[in-house]
């Protein structure tokens, strides 16, 4: 245990995902030794990101305004929606330059043991987006692991009565990994080779 504010910093850092007590301590001492101007910039960015960034009203991607960059771009195809788990997956798919439609960010994946069910994700909002019939294709780009597969099969079942084409990324994406680790070429190929799913 360290004194007062140093321990507070270690505790705060330790609450971040992927950071254990040892890493938290290492980062805390890095900050203590760092240039005050650098630390001020980091603190300012942390506050700004919470104040200025919001979630897109349509797709729940991170946005600097009410709508994200993609939903407010008139050149994007509004008949296709690519469903992803997190905003970082939007970035991964955008890097491939294979996709010109819009997105829907679920905010996670179904995981009953983790206490996450369909109602905890932006699934109701997705169904509402599909209601007016202007979307004709849905691409399920959830992670190629169990949680992502379960989420995709749940969505495919819910959406089946709506009569639109539902496809799932396929070829080249090995099961078990996270989408964010797929390189652009593999992910691009998976988009091209997507297969239609029927629940």
């Amino acid at each position: 245990m360290y004194e007062g504010v140093v321990q507070d910093l270690i505790d705060e850092l330790g609450m971040l995902p992927g950071i254990g007590p040892k890493s938290a301590q290492r980062i805390a001492f890095h900050i203590l030794a760092a240039d005050p101007a650098d630390v001020r910039r980091l603190a300012k960015t942390l506050i700004e990101v919470k104040e200025k960034v919001q979630f897109c009203r349509i797709c729940f991607n991170v946005a600097q305004a009410e709508l994200c960059r993609i939903c407010s771009d008139p050149r994007r195809d509004t008949t296709v929606i690519c469903v992803v788990e997190e905003s970082k997956d939007v970035v991964a798919v955008e890097r491939t330059r294979e996709f010109r439609g819009r997105y829907h960010v679920l905010g996670g994946a179904i995981n009953p043991i983790g206490g996450v069910g369909p109602d905890d994700l932006h699934i109701r909002e997705l169904i509402a987006r599909l209601a007016d019939g202007s979307v004709t294709e849905l691409i399920l780009a959830t992670d190629p692991n169990t949680e992502g597969e379960v989420t995709a099969s749940y969505l495919a079942r819910q959406i089946a009565p709506m009569g639109l084409t539902v496809s799932r990324l396929a070829s080249g994406l090995p099961m078990g990994g996270d989408l964010e680790w797929a390189d652009e070429v593999t992910l691009g190929r998976a988009f091209e080779g997507r297969r239609t799913v029927s629940p």
């Binding site: 090995p174 990994g177 996270d178 680790w181």
Partner: peptide
Amino acid sequence: RTSSRFGA
């Protein structure tokens, strides 16, 4: 990683 030898 998608290249993991453990796969699924």
